[in-house]
Design a protein around this nucleic acid. Sequence first.
DNA 1: GTAAGTACTATACTAATGTATAGCTCTATA
DNA 2: TATAGAGCTATACATTAGTATAGTACTTAC
Lengths: 122, 122
Amino acid sequence: MMESIIPPTDHNVGKCMNAILPVRDALDVINGKWKLPIIISLTFGNKRFSEMAREIPAITDRMLSKELRDLEMNELVKRTVYDSVPVVVEYSLTPYGASLKKVIEELRMWGVEHRKRILGKA
Amino acid sequence: MMESIIPPTDHNVGKCMNAILPVRDALDVINGKWKLPIIISLTFGNKRFSEMAREIPAITDRMLSKELRDLEMNELVKRTVYDSVPVVVEYSLTPYGASLKKVIEELRMWGVEHRKRILGKA
DNA sequence: GTAAGTACTATACTAATGTATAGCTCTATA
DNA sequence: TATAGAGCTATACATTAGTATAGTACTTAC
């Protein structure tokens, strides 16, 4: 199996780009270590800043703050300030942010298998 | 809609971690700007170095070389050297690398919608 | 009045990622 | 003999991502 020594320069360069470009568009929005964890945390309900800081393992305030701003700009996350007596700020997923659910689910399933694989070796 | 002002500190912190940790395991392997594009390019067939360098928009030799090494270490990509008369080096996806297909497909579909959304605004 | 919580921002730094440019060995081709 | 691939590696550098630590303004609880 796995023979080939390269097929006669096929013309799927276009096909290949058609697959790569949308994925790069997606990656531009959800890249980095923290954006998906933040989005995942919000799929479990609306959260305040410090709740998220507690729930997301090892994130610093600075990164949480920065990434929330990014996600808000890209309209994946909504920030709502309630002018209650100590001010309460609530973060929620927009429907657009929620549309990442299937991506996240596939990634999670793959990650579970990957971890099994790695632990199997150690 | 979208009322809430935060529900009474619910106890889904554990649930949340169970979702976040596998996704982070997955991200550890496929993070960065180039790994998925490289894998995608290989889903269209085995490739030589310079073919990939041509097919993947704007990648430099250095990054291609570095990322291929990473992917090889994580056993997503296989490197085969044929001792033909000019030496030919062929890269291919391992079955493990191919197991990312569904993740990539979801990401691609999301990316297509995302691009529509962005172009709709401009 | 002190501690602790909420929601951050500021500063300073390191490490990782990515870019630009060049060079190497080898071979086939003009 | 020079040029152009193939498959890289080396050097230098810029940019981005991420970490560590501290501090602010406000408020309620002890």
